[in-house]
Write a protein that binds this DNA or RNA. Structure first.
Length: 415
DNA sequence: TCTGGGGTCCTAGGACCC
DNA sequence: TCTGGGGTCCTAGGACCC
């Protein structure tokens, strides 16, 4: 007998835009977009004009001249997103949050308390609506993947339950791009073979699929198309990397631009790493040139690091090698740093991770100690007075800030 | 006339070791 | 000394997701 459908996927509808309409009633029923240069979220009224997230502001205005742009109440996004997830947590502790506005839950263990999964899903929707004032769609199915597809089909403000005995009938009619992992490139590749629905993909011989998409993707999509992917819920997944980037317009690739930008990025990342005692061994930088092509370079160290200045130094060296390898590129439009190979937990009592060649592990190293002490002091002052109080802030460095730090904060994953 | 920021996972080649 | 195979790690790039 098939397992029962007990996995829920809950997804707040047009989240940022819905919060703005909640906070300002005069915006309700109107096409609005959150953002400015880029649309971060569009209300359903705006979506009716073809506007969607990621679109440039100018393009959106062309599609809908009466479109209203609203500033982001980022603190409220965070608060309401947390509150919605907490409602789910009132039913089961098995919750896997995947972003600010989206989570999986397994209610197999709590049906004796709250009723069938469909009833629990309906109760969650009612409570989020009445207590928070926000629309949320929920999909219910036997697997995570199918539950996620169901919630997409349920939008806006709906509930779709896929019973275990009607899974393939439901799934096979839908377009391939609803599958997790099928983006524009894969969709086009499949279309070239005459595949546009999940059913057509399912009936494709495994060999053709793997030839088309590679062994891993081919096997994965094949399993998804038959709903044979019993991926378990992971309530507490640890982050595998932490990064930051800054689009800087078009700037000359010179020290005056590069150094302060990298320092700011390294500061954001290293502060997070220190806060969670998770230094990392691999530093990756990305440089995007004026024509939007980008190049990455990385280095893996023997000893994990989380000191701001040491991270900034490695990043700068990597950027220099990129520029040396591309001598004709003199204009850059973005710099990014990412740290991966994160330690699970670094016990400071046992060992001090300073990094930077020979000075590592040398307790008497003056440079290492000085940097360590400076980081600690800055972290402490910020804990008391806020992040802008001291350090390598963008304001202090005279950097233009295209995106407010509050937005960056809510996009960060918990380390 | 060029669009943000923070992430995950996969691929393919090469170095290196056994 | 030559040949082969397997495994692991590193690096660069790319697709995709929210």
């Amino acid at each position: 007998m098939a397992t029962a459908a007990t996995i829920l996927h809950a997804d707040l509808d047009a989240f940022y835009a819905s919060v703005e309409q909640l906070l300002d009633p005069s915006l309700r029923g109107k096409p609005i977009a959150v953002g400015g240069g880029v649309v971060l979220a569009a209300s359903y009224e705006a979506k009716a004009f073809g506007i969607h997230g990621g679109m440039s502001g100018r393009q959106a205005r062309e599609l809908c001249p009466q479109l209203t742009f609203v500033g982001g109440h980022f603190r409220d996004y965070e608060r309401l997103g947390d509150a919605a997830i907490k409602v789910i947590g009132d039913f089961t502790p098995l919750v896997e949050r995947i972003s600010i506005d989206e989570a999986f839950a397994d209610v197999a263990g709590c049906t004796h308390l709250f009723g069938a999964p469909a009833e629990i899903a309906a109760a969650i929707r009612r409570r989020v609506r009445s207590e928070l004032g926000l629309p949320i769609s929920v999909g219910v199915a036997r697997t995570k993947h199918l539950a996620k597809i169901a919630s997409q089909v349920a939008k806006p403000d709906g509930l779709v339950v896929v019973d275990a005995d009607t899974e393939l009938e439901f799934l096979h009619e839908l377009p391939v791009e609803l599958m997790w992992g099928v983006g524009p490139v894969t969709k086009a590749r499949l279309a070239a073979s005459g595949v546009s629905t999940i059913g057509q993909l399912a009936r494709l011989p495994g060999r053709s699929l793997e030839r088309l998409l590679g062994p891993a993707a081919g096997e994965k999509l094949g399993a998804l198309a038959w709903n044979r992917d019993p991926r378990p819920l992971k309530p507490h997944r640890r982050a595998r990397s932490a990064g930051a980037q800054s689009a800087i317009g078009r700037k000359p690739a010179v020290e005056r631009i590069i150094r302060p930008t990298l320092l700011h990025l390294a500061d954001r990342i290293a502060t997070r790493l220190r806060a969670k005692s998770r230094p990392g061994r691999t530093v990756t930088v990305r440089v995007r040139f004026a024509d939007l092509r980008s190049v990455t370079r990385s280095i893996t160290l023997d000893i994990p690091i989380f000191a701001t200045l040491i991270l900034a130094d490695y990043a700068e060296r990597l950027v220099r090698t990129i520029l040396a390898d591309h001598p004709h590129e003199r204009t850059i439009s973005l710099l990014a740093i990412s740290v991966s190979h994160l330690e699970e937990h670094w016990d400071l009592e046992l060992e001090l991770p300073f990094g930077l060649e020979g000075e590592a592990r040398r307790p008497g190293s003056r440079l290492g100690m000085a940097r360590w002490a400076a980081d600690c002091a800055i972290d402490k002052i910020r804990d008391r007075f806020g992040r802008e109080a001291i350090g390598y802030g963008s304001a202090a460095l005279g950097l233009s800030r295209s995106v407010p730090d509050e937005l960056r904060n809510i996009a960060e994953k918990e380390l």
